[in-house]
Amino acid sequence: MCETCGCGDPELVPVEIQQSILAGNDRVAAHNREHFADAGLLAINLMGSPGSGKTALLEATATAWPHESRLGAISGDLATTRDADRLGAAGVPSLSITTGSSCHLDAELVHTALHDLDWHGLDLLFIENVGNLVCPAVYDLGQTVNVVALSVTEGEDKPLKYPVMFRKADLVLLTKTDLLPHLDVDVAAIEDGLARTMPAAAMIPVSAKTGEGITDWIAWLNRRLPTLAGAGSARTKTAAGR
């Protein structure tokens, strides 16, 4: 008998949980984050729509990198290993994660990939997320920073339409600026949208094609490179690619 109202219904046991549903993912993400910190590695979660120019940006970054640093990448896609193949050809050791039907990377997928990629000697690890402005923002991967690629062809209202993604961005790269002369895009409107969705709004206009902004982007990354104790910022030069 129910003790509350005396009815014949079985007793219901209420249990307070107060736990994040993504606690499992977050535990693995914290584990990844520890690995990266121990290795003095800057892990970048690079997100953006399909076709926003993420892979081309990384190719241009690898080509323009001015000093001795080791870059590596993990590329997530529903199908094909094309992104990882392109980056490998650009001299960046890369591993593909083919997610099948999953629209985002999660901490477990990244953790598994770390078993197959020789990341210990890397200074920067780019985690190129699945092209998607919605789901990737929800999952902590253990990254150091979030960077969102937003191309000039996507429309000025994207920050306002996707506040969940842009809130999490440490930096927005406005890509494909070489196309601006052919478009009626108000860049100030994009900046205004970012100011209303990103607490510390920061945007660098870039073009993988012409190289515009790539130096500023590389400087932004270099300012965030952790320095290993006793090693300063010196890194050993290695053979390009694998």
Binding site: V13, Q18, S20, I21
Partner: peptide, 20 residues
């Protein structure tokens, strides 16, 4: 200062009621 999000990003299991 940049704004801080005080609430609004929760994905939380609060409570369950079970028949023991």
């Amino acid at each position: 200062q940049p704004a801080q999000l005080e609430s609004g990003d929760e994905i939380v299991l609060q409570r369950i009621e079970m028949e023991a």
